[in-house]
């Protein structure tokens, strides 16, 4: 959880002035400082190898071997009282360390404590499913597969959850471009009309700042009614705003602007 910072002085103080500002590291403390965590840690260490452990922001973080993940979570659930798996996902470290860090966020309602179990897997390695222990892991593991491409063994329904089934690429990887690769750019066109329609429909226009005021294909002219695709002369007289065409509409009473009343009290 993020620490709360008061936002009421946000206008007075500039937070992002230093270009080479380095984020301060959240201080870590030893597990022995908290009696409850120390007991859990000792119980775990009797059965499993713990690679690293510390307490950060009141939560214990432990690193385990990825092959132990099912057994560790089962142990924590059955013997330590961590009965809820509140979150499960991964962090992309492919560029730095060649793999993913998978984390399991556990909650104990009786002890009022949270534990984060982490393990590191290589880019092409799979991890065991914990869906049999926690039903909440079902969709989380599917999302992890969808977003990072981490295969999960023994999962009952290993299928993409957010992106379409025929999607290529894994969007939450750091290497995935935010505006999509070529497959993503043409996805809807390929899917609906076929690849041969690409030339007709044309590429996506991603530049939101691109405004050509004489372009009547894509832009309207304020105050003017200009047919699509025609040339626009800014000096031509403005089209008056009208809900109905000249001469009125058959069987429908026209709107007389002079007879309308503007209500000044908005709360009326």
């Amino acid at each position: 959880m993020r620490p709360y910072t008061p936002k009421d002085d946000v206008q007075k103080k500039s937070y992002y002035t230093d270009r080479y500002w380095v984020a301060p590291q959240v201080p870590k403390s030893d597990v022995s400082e908290d009696a409850v965590f120390a007991a859990d840690h000792a119980a775990l260490r009797a059965h499993f190898e713990i690679l690293e452990d510390y307490i950060q922001r009141g939560q214990m973080v432990i690193y385990i071997h990825p092959k132990d993940n099912y057994a560790v979570l089962e142990f924590l659930r059955d013997h330590c009282g961590y009965t809820q798996l509140s979150e499960l996902s991964a962090i992309d470290w492919i560029a730095q360390r060649g793999g993913f860090e998978v984390f399991y966020q556990m909650l104990s309602m009786t002890k009022k404590k949270r534990i984060r179990v982490k393990c590191f897997i290589g880019e092409h390695e799979a991890i065991n499913s914990v869906e049999k222990l926690f039903r909440s892991a079902d969709w989380s593991e599917r999302e992890m597969y969808d977003m990072f491409g981490i295969k999960v063994n023994n999962h009952p329904f290993m299928k993409r959850i957010l992106m379409p089934d025929d999607w290529e690429g894994f969007p939450l990887r750091k290497t995935y471009p935010l505006q999509g690769d070529e497959f993503a750019a043409w996805y809807e066109v390929d899917r609906i009309f076929g690849k041969e329609a690409r030339d007709i429909i044309g590429p996506e226009i991603r530049d939101t700042a691109r405004v050509d005021r004489y372009d009547t294909e894509r832009f309207a002219q304020l105050g003017h009614e200009v047919p699509k695709g025609s040339t626009f002369d800014p000096n031509q007289p403005k089209t008056p705003l009208a809900y109905q065409e000249e001469g009125g509409v058959f069987l429908i009473e026209g709107f007389d602007e002079t007879k309308s009343k503007i209500i000044s009290d908005r709360k009326r």
């Binding site: 505006q179 993503a184 809807e188 991603r206």
Partner: peptide, 13 residues
């Protein structure tokens, strides 16, 4: 939503 998952204008479809 200038992202990979959004159709950039419904008139593409």
């Amino acid at each position: 939503f200038n992202t990979y998952a959004t159709v950039q204008g419904v008139d593409r479809v």
